[in-house]
Structure formats: structure tokens, C-alpha cells
Design a protein around this nucleic acid. Structure first.
Lengths: 132, 132
DNA sequence: TACATAATGTTATATTATAACAATTTTAAT
DNA sequence: ATTAAAATTGTTATAATATAACATTATGTA
């Protein structure tokens, strides 16, 4: 489970929107959605997003500049993330596969770098879109 | 080896700059560098970048919005990419590890998605920066 | 209380990327 | 060589993503 962070008002508003969304949300789409709640400026959104990413409640899908709630009850922070992305319908799913995460967390390359974090994005077609 | 693509003038100019750079370059930094060669507009840069990515001559480092020349003589196109990124000095290296690429290319998750592509970015400290 | 830290609000601006359209060059088939 | 299609280029404008800087307010904690 996530360590409990007491989210602030803005953080909670923005987390709720992302958490309820079936698809990753972009910062300005979030901004548009929260203007009725008094959050008026991009920076207010970005600050909340930064914090939510930092504490592992959401992840950024780098290839899409969009944010998704963490689906993975066993991850405390966002140090090891993997996603599958359908290039047709843009559905994004967080992959929770212990074989994969073990393999990647233990990966060492010849350059001798010490890795503390990784992000993996798979692209392809989801079941629904394959049959179309 | 790469399939030979005869690069156009703009593509060649922009590829050369990226290829000679020891670090990933951002689009507007490239633009600044090629203005003396007659490339004046962002779109000219982005179009060349898009094409170079498409044919596998360069890769985009998604977490940095920057571009690096392909270091991997065995990759035809950019369907299976992995990078190590030093969070201190920002050095980026393309990982060429057949065990890793086999593992990821064969990866199937329970959702049954058919993957045609992946991108993996490792973050940490490079040898030099660890000892600092 | 009072200090430090974190979060907020606000304006302005920086950075990254694409739309739309016209013109030119290249390719490949006749 | 001719020509039609496809790719590339040039250009202006604008959209989309993200941060700087600074003043203020709220929260945690000694």
C-alpha cells in the first residue's frame, strides 16, 4: 500500500480527477476541469502533479505527456514503472509483473551505472484494437 | 547496419549535428545551431527529426525531450530502445544488451497485448558521478 | 508562541510542438 | 524526356507544455 500522505486541497482535487479518469490526462485538460474549483493557473496544476508523482500516487506517461493514477498497490514510489500503450485507442495500463520488475531492477549493464529508477513503455495494439 | 537512406539536405545537416554531439540535443538547440545553414524555422527541424526517428538514425529520449544518434549498429529501426541516463551529469547512453532486448521483445503480459515496440529509460548515477 | 517548511496564488514568460498552405524537388512509371 | 505522385521544403502563425519569480498563507513542530 501507499504510505499515507495527507494530500492538500489542490493535490486532492487533482488526484481525484486523474484517479477517476479511464485514460491518462494532460496537464491543461486537468486545468480546464478544475477551474470551476478555483484552480486557475497552470502552475497550480503542475505543482500538484509534481508532488503526486514524487509520492507515487500518479505516474507520468512520458511519451504522451500525460498522467495516470498508480494502479499498483505494491509500489510505494515511482521508481520502477512499466506501461502498455495501445497506439490505436491510446489505452494505457500499468504493468504489474514481478518477473519483469525483478529482471529490470537487477539489470546491470557493462557501463557500471548504478540505477535507482526505470521507466518502460510498451507500444502495440490492445486486444480490442487487434480485431478491428 | 542501418538500411541506407539517402538523407536530404536538411536531414543530413540535422543528423550530423546530433551525431557529433556528446549529449542529447533539444530541438530548439538544434535550431539555433543550424540557423547559419539556412534552416530558420522550428518545423524544418521537427520534420527532419521525425524522419530521422522514423528511419532509426536517431532516438528521442522521452524524459528529456532530446535526441541522440543511434549507437546501436544492429538496430534497423527504433522499435526496441533502452537508455541509461545519469541524473547528475545527464549523460545518456544507448544500452545494447541482447539479453535485455530478448527479454523485453518476448515479454507478454496477461492483458494479451501485442507489442510492436518498447522504450526503456534507466536513471541513476554514472561511474564518474558516483564518486563525486 | 514563533520559527521553519510547505503549499498557494498570481503574472509573466520560456520551451516544445503542430496547423495550414504554397512551392519545389525527387521518384518512378510511362 | 514526360508526367503524375510522393516527399520535402519554406513560411507564418499558433497551439500545447512547462517553469521563473515573487508575494502570501497555511501547516507542522519545537
Amino acid at each position: 500500500m501507499h504510505k499515507e500522505h495527507n494530500l492538500t486541497k489542490n493535490q486532492q482535487i487533482i488526484f481525484d480527477i486523474i484517479d477517476r479518469s479511464p485514460e491518462p490526462l494532460k496537464a491543461y485538460s486537468i486545468l480546464f476541469n478544475v477551474q470551476k474549483k478555483g484552480i486557475k493557473a497552470p502552475l497550480q496544476v503542475y505543482r500538484a502533479l509534481d508532488k503526486l508523482v514524487e509520492i507515487g500516487k500518479i505516474h507520468k506517461i512520458e511519451s504522451r505527456n500525460a498522467f495516470i493514477a498508480c494502479q499498483n498497490s505494491s509500489c510505494q514510489v515511482s521508481k520502477a514503472t512499466a506501461f502498455s500503450i495501445c497506439e490505436s485507442c491510446e489505452k494505457v495500463t500499468e504493468i504489474n509483473n514481478s518477473s519483469l520488475s525483478k529482471y529490470l531492477s537487477n539489470f546491470k549493464d557493462k557501463a557500471g551505472m548504478k540505477y535507482s529508477k526505470y521507466n518502460l513503455e510498451f507500444f502495440g495494439l490492445c486486444k480490442k484494437c487487434i480485431t478491428k
